[in-house]
């Protein structure tokens, strides 16, 4: 009787730890993979071709407007300044010109640092920083990284979280008032 109880207890403890272990594996390894879906950009855009090949810099396409707002990604209009016709031989360019430019459809780029509508972000106010302080350094790469989308929230995995914004603001002594960033 005593023995049986002891063994049962022992087995119980074992089962308990198996449960804990399984949870930890699922929680730390499976879950982070399952929660994101992977998406690829609509066009296999190469920054390298533009930066190294054509000698362009970030501001050539990602421009500021006169009123201090940031244009973000270039529109067809801007791209067409060079790409009115197919210039090279790349498949990507051909796709762009045929599928987007000629059809007058803007490219639905996936923005890694996408912030939701409730955030007001002024690039002008952050002009002193390097682009790569926040954005992935794609300027010299031939391929675009995979875009990870959170299945629950719909956010990009690389979207800066509020605490990150707040931490930097605190470090540089900028206000962390709600309305500094929200709208």
């Amino acid at each position: 009787m005593e023995e049986k109880r002891a063994s049962k207890q022992c087995g119980g403890v074992l089962a308990f730890f198996i449960g804990v272990l399984a949870s930890l594996v699922i929680g730390w390894w499976v879950f982070p993979q399952v929660i994101y879906s992977q998406k690829t950009q609509p066009i296999d855009f190469s920054h390298k071709v533009h930066v190294e090949g054509e000698g362009m810099d970030c501001e050539s396409c990602h421009t500021f407007m006169e009123d201090g707002s940031f244009a973000g990604l270039p529109s067809n209009e801007q791209c067409a300044e060079c790409h009115e016709d197919i210039l090279g031989e790349s498949k990507a360019e051909e796709t762009y010109v045929n599928e987007y430019l000629n059809k007058d459809v803007e490219v639905p780029w996936l923005v890694y640092q996408y912030q939701p509508d409730n955030v007001y972000f002024s690039h002008m106010a952050h002009k002193g920083f390097e682009c790569t302080d926040c954005h992935p350094d794609v300027g010299n790469s031939d391929t675009l990284p995979t875009y990870y989308e959170n299945r629950i929230s719909g956010y990009s995995k690389q979207t800066m979280k509020m605490w990150q914004c707040e931490r930097c603001h605190a470090e540089v002594g900028t206000s962390n008032a709600c309305y500094v960033c929200h709208k």
Binding site: F16, G19, V20, L21, S23, G27
Partner: peptide
């Protein structure tokens, strides 16, 4: 006990 362990974990 397995389930309890899972929850705790």
């Amino acid at each position: 006990q397995l389930v309890t362990g899972g929850v705790v974990g």
